[in-house]
Design a protein around this nucleic acid. Structure first.
Lengths: 207, 207
DNA sequence: AGATACTGGATAGTGCTACTATCCATCGTA
DNA sequence: TACGATGGATAGTAGCACTATCCAGTATCT
């Protein structure tokens, strides 16, 4: 365990915590108080840290994602759903308020118009409604016209992502690709967006 | 204050908390223990909730953003920088590790190749390096080729966003546009991405 | 004018999350 | 056989975002 801690940079106490929480499977015991932690554990530990630190997941959310990874019955498309479900943080919007319901209906309609096939109860639809309703409430409706720019861009991008993951062929690699692509990809995308905004803003207004 | 609470759906105790923390300016006192909270306070309160609930900011980060909004010396491009800085959560990467430094150098190079003019110490560059280093460490290097798809998409998108905000003309409206566009726009974008992924995944693998 | 409810401000407490520290009976090694 | 290290259990901590209570001072109803 000391070696695992050394190699991963995660403290022994924290490793014990992850073992307790079920994020990390127990090592193969070689005695009453001795255990081996092969390379797979190091790999898993790094994934945990990436999900939590870079992806911003909570420990509980990370656990859900990891359970989906470990469940051999969950394949490609379903795994994506599980990953999305696991990383969806529930908002505190009053989802019975007329504003929210209107926003929710509107986004469902837009998605249908785009021809996107999504589960009608996808968590992302609710999240989108949250954000749209918030924009409305803040009097920023004009910015919502950007949805027409966002949507096709995301469509193209998602297509490439799915292609890249599916190209891997075998389940284990695909599963990891879905998870890292979803969670870390989000981090990459938002960072790139901010950089692009800075660039665009500099172009508009000078240094 | 009771009325403000009623209209915003935020409890009185929480409003008091925001007043204490300096997120919400004090109302105009009409007596030793009476104060008026005009519509502007309601507006501000809604912005606070949107930043925290939808944008996922911490109270401290929201405070920084609001301070930037209130500072009349901060204009367009600078405001964007402040907003980006305020919403950047610091990661726990060891930024002296060779992997991270390599990733950081690599992303700086890529951005330069794209011709993007960004401040060389932009927080987003570090965040991008975090995510890239994590991808590498997890053996998902092949997914990094998607950067070539992400970057031009974000460039186009950011251009439209900046245009939309600059088109507003007056400072107050631009400032709010920058903040909501940056924070809520991110929420919208990630929700759309997830929906697009689901669609693309369904197309690849059937329902 | 008096009873009652409510106000804004100060202070202290709560629940949750993500660890961190301590204890202890083994166990491997010198 | 001495000794530090190990894995497991239990308890404690720090930070965050509220939440509850207390208080003197209005406002309002009767």
């Amino acid at each position: 365990m000391a070696e695992l801690s050394q190699r991963s940079g995660v403290s022994i106490a924290t490793i014990k915590f992850y073992l307790r929480e079920g994020l990390l499977p127990p090592g193969t015991a070689t005695g009453r108080n001795q255990a081996d932690y092969p390379d797979e554990h190091l790999r898993r530990l790094r994934l945990i840290r990436a999900l939590i630190d870079v992806g911003g997941l909570t420990v509980a959310a990370a656990k859900n994602v990891l359970q989906a990874i470990d469940d051999p019955a969950i394949y490609g498309h379903d795994l994506l759903g599980v990953a999305h479900h696991a990383i969806a943080k529930q908002s505190r919007w009053d989802r019975s308020s007329p504003q929210w319901i209107a926003a929710r209906r509107e986004v469902a309609e837009r998605i249908t118009q785009l021809g996107w096939q999504v589960h009608s109860e996808a968590a992302a639809l609710d999240q989108l409604a949250d954000a749209v309703a918030a924009m409305r409430e803040l009097g920023q409706e004009d910015l919502l016209s950007l949805l027409d720019v966002y949507a096709p861009a995301m469509e193209k991008l998602a297509q490439k992502e799915v292609e890249a993951v599916v190209a891997r062929g075998e389940r284990a690699a695909m599963v990891e690709g879905v998870v890292t692509g979803t969670v870390l990809g989000e981090a990459i995308l938002t960072a790139l967006r901010r950089l692009a905004q800075e660039h665009a803003s500099a172009g508009q207004q000078g240094p």
